[in-house]
């Protein structure tokens, strides 16, 4: 199932990326090459095989719900491209 140019543009939008016109063709070809290669997985009989999500037998890592030291507000904001009054600033959305 080869990806079309339009599908590549759609995936880019989902990933919050934009593609330059000259990149569209290259990316379409490269992604299709990779997908054609990974299609190899379909050869494997996986009937009844559980998917492996975790390599060590761990489920939830719980701890008591207690306040513990963490970054303070100034430290958390220190790397923000734009900040104001103790908050991150984003472009206007409404």
């Amino acid at each position: 199932m080869a990806l079309t140019r339009e599908e590549v543009l759609h995936v880019a939008t989902l990933a919050r990326l934009s593609l330059k016109p000259e990149e569209i063709e290259t990316f379409t070809r490269q992604l299709n090459d990779i997908l054609a290669y990974v299609a190899k997985l379909q050869e494997v009989d996986t009937e009844g095989v559980p998917p492996l999500a975790h390599v060590i037998p761990l489920s939830n890592a719980f701890r008591e719900d207690e306040v513990q030291p963490s970054l303070d507000r100034d430290e958390s904001l220190a790397n923000a491209p734009e900040r104001e009054e103790g908050a991150f600033v984003v472009p206007r959305v409404i």
Partner: peptide, 8 residues
Amino acid sequence: KASQVRTL
């Protein structure tokens, strides 16, 4: 599918 192959 990839995660199942991972089990194998």
